[in-house]
Write a protein that binds this DNA or RNA. Structure first.
Lengths: 457, 457
DNA sequence: ATACATACC
DNA sequence: TACTGGTATGTAT
DNA sequence: ATACATACC
DNA sequence: TACTGGTATGTAT
């Protein structure tokens, strides 16, 4: 390592800024990409956000270093046993492989942005994003060509594309349109599982067999009906399990579909060079960790599973292995028993320009408590555990929680408890305050209409 | 409930004493059984043990009452959803049903007692039990006819059968004989799983297919070879999974075998009237709880699964349902990865006549610490967590634990920490003291030979 | 139970 | 000037 | 992590 | 006179 030339990053630091925003799809040549990286870097480099981000990446690298040390200490003998563990895991994963189910993952194209375009067609011809100067939810396809993406702050989007139109989100409207899509989904699978406003998983096995049609034909029908109903386009993935369907729905986006043939050879070929980051559940950090061990694709995961076994948790091994083999849930998950509410927590948080005045912060907690309490009332639920979330001005996150003896939902109780926890943290300079209630149960009160069920077991 | 005659138990209290000892096998007529119950009752009724036992049973009954209240509050609507949950659970359990594996559970007959008879044939003709006046491990079949059973204290055994010969256990010898049996088991399944000195689970699928013989034939061979090798008899259960094999090995005990045909009809018939207590994992308490809801057999579990869903934990539901359907593990469990030691804890405890002198108790902790440390040294392991176990003179059990920053194994450290925890409990009158170490890792020291592996993940 | 990290939309 | 808000889940203690 | 309960041999 | 000892696992907090 010593005596080498300084790495390129020291001279063109933005080239190393391979953040969330830049590691996606094709469609731009490398000059464009380079420019985009540079703009993002310049816009970010002095912010606390950027510092925190770098710190995290550094810590992950240190974690990689520690794991590598651990790996180095593994004896040959132990490694043999890790290989055996891997063989075991693969064998038991394979028992969960189901090829005979037809899953379709439907993903609305640039959903929020498309709804806005629908409601104001003039937006169709300009680069546009739904969100605020602080944060973008979705960008339309024109804006994406400038490098504007979701989860990017609006001010960076503006720097990438000064003409960018920022449209304030209108969630009520998106919900409406989402309900329209659901009417379509129900036709094909009354039990479809939705994953947010803009996507859903449908088990179309029964529909296909009853109507004697293929998954691909069903996907066509879904896309047609969704268009008819909502005037919006969506993309579909057709495969034999949820994960594969989800990955497939991204393949021919927008307004397309992709069918993965339900046979092992096709699945293995599909998965072989798939970047691990495509596995739902593998985010930036896990990707960085795996890359640190030279594991970039699902094929690499299989080849190096013994390394993963040596260095990660058994659950992580099993998850990565299963996913990389193209295996995942092929049946609908159990719906929550009446024992449980389907929701496990409810929360409310706000970001603001960093503040340290104690009274101001305490007042904000009070108002959060009222907001949260109102949300709880509207579902007739109460909760046992109060968690306060603080984000310091340097983006460090802290949580403090307290579990009570009996559940509460009134704003006064929530406020009192949250304030007490906040006070213990003073002095602090905060950019975010949040309150969350968990351990939820329906309110069994006089005339309330509990929409949920009594806490189970 | 009011105005009824006093229940029979008030007059003949021993009839209600349906404890561990009396609710087993046939072979005695009801007069005998009644006599046995009465003797046991008379021998027990004034002891602290008996009081604690009654207290626990009472608490379980209160728990049943509470669960029934909860059940009563379940609305029709909720109950419908519990039914749906059950349907879901059954569907997913059925996906785990494997009929094509051949499992054999081998259970040595009255193992310790039989070894003693082998070494001293004069014991064959008299009622005999291995154990002490305080506790019996195993009784031979002659003694069993008097009602003497394992887990019964020797003094009660003597009251049931004054001629009872009590033989002191010789574990080294049993281990030797157990190793002999294992040599046999390895022939049929090199990966067999042992469950204590006297039983094992063998997956004989491969052996059967390689040698073109049936499970029943293999069981014959196992029994012959075990007899040849050890001069001891054993019993075998042959079925398509571990649980069923285990239950089957009990069917024709001693010196017999039982084959359960691997088809759903046969399994359903087998399981229908099987008492829940036969399910390995369902002990006295769960049995009592289930009986409290009128659930006595596996058939009842299936019929009343919605009740179980409403009242027990999802895991318990799934376990009881799966078991009652005759489904269980059909493949060898993963062996511990080199990441882990196969052992998760190591402990040492002693019972004595109740003491409250603090110095005496502290000295006892010191000697336990030395014992434990020696056991750990012999395996070259150390541990992070120290747990002290106390049993008060009234049989109440208390545990206190502390997790350290770095692992220990030397007697001084263990003793120091355990004593500190004990002192906090003073004053107490104890009949048992124990120490356990967990969070184990191999000692990576100079010339030690770690038999295990470094702590994982 | 508490605290924190990761992930997804 | 300026990097969300809501939820679930995993991991460690 | 801590405490306690259940289960098995 | 007198009701074990060792281990794993689940549940709750």
């Amino acid at each position: 390592m010593e005596g080498e030339n300084p790495p390129i990053q020291d001279i063109q630091p933005w080239k190393a800024i391979d953040t969330v925003y830049t590691n996606e799809k094709a469609g731009m040549d490398s000059v464009d990409k380079d420019l985009i990286k540079r703009v993002i870097y310049e816009a970010s480099k002095d912010s606390n956000f950027f510092k925190k981000d770098e710190e995290k990446r550094k810590q992950t690298n240190e974690r990689i270093a520690r794991l590598k040390e651990k790996l180095a200490k593994v004896t040959e003998d132990e490694m043999k046993r890790y290989h055996a563990t891997v063989r075991d895991s693969i064998r038991s994963a394979e028992r969960e492989r189901h090829l005979s189910r037809i899953w379709i993952h439907v993903d609305m194209d640039a959903f929020f942005a498309s709804v806005e375009e629908l409601d104001d067609p003039s937006l169709k011809s300009v680069p546009m994003a739904v969100g605020s100067i602080g944060m973008i939810s979705t960008a339309n396809y024109i804006a994406r060509r400038f490098g504007v993406r979701s989860a990017m702050p609006g001010f960076i989007g503006k720097q990438l594309c000064p003409q960018l139109a920022l449209v304030k989100p209108n969630f009520r409207r998106y919900k409406e349109k989402s309900e329209e899509t659901k009417e379509v989904f129900r036709i094909f699978d009354p039990d479809f599982e939705s994953g947010g406003l803009d996507e859903a998983y449908l088990d179309c096995t029964a529909f296909a067999s009853v109507h004697g049609i293929s998954g691909e034909e069903i996907a066509e029908q879904i896309r047609n009906l969704v268009m008819e109903k909502t005037k919006l386009t969506c993309s579909c993935g057709v495969a034999c399990n949820k994960m594969l369907a989800k990955i497939c729905s991204d393949k021919n986006k927008p307004n397309g579909q992709f069918f993965l043939s339900p046979n092992i050879a096709a699945i293995k070929a599909f998965v072989k060079d798939l970047p691990v980051r495509k596995i739902p559940g593998v985010g930036c950090v896990t990707e960085q960790l795996l890359n640190g061990f030279g594991i970039n694709t699902c094929g690499d995961v299989i080849k190096n599973a013994h390394v993963i076994a040596a260095v990660f948790t058994p659950l992580t091994l099993s998850f990565l292995l299963t996913s990389s083999l193209g295996i995942s849930t092929a049946f609908h998950g159990k719906k929550p028993a009446p024992g449980e509410l389907s929701r496990k927590g409810i929360s409310c948080e706000h970001t603001f320009t960093a503040k340290e005045d104690e009274n101001t912060l305490l007042q904000m907690v009070g108002s959060l408590a009222h907001e949260l309490s109102a949300a709880m009332a509207s579902e007739s639920i109460e909760g046992l555990t109060v968690t306060v979330k603080l984000k310091l001005s340097d983006f460090t996150v802290r949580t403090r929680s307290l579990t009570l003896l009996s559940p509460i939902s009134d704003p006064e109780s929530i406020s009192r408890i949250a304030s007490k926890m906040l006070r213990k943290e003073f002095p602090v300079k905060l950019r975010l305050l949040g309150i969350r209630m968990s351990g939820l149960s329906p309110i069994a009160n006089a005339n309330g209409k509990p929409k949920g069920n009594s806490k189970g077991s």
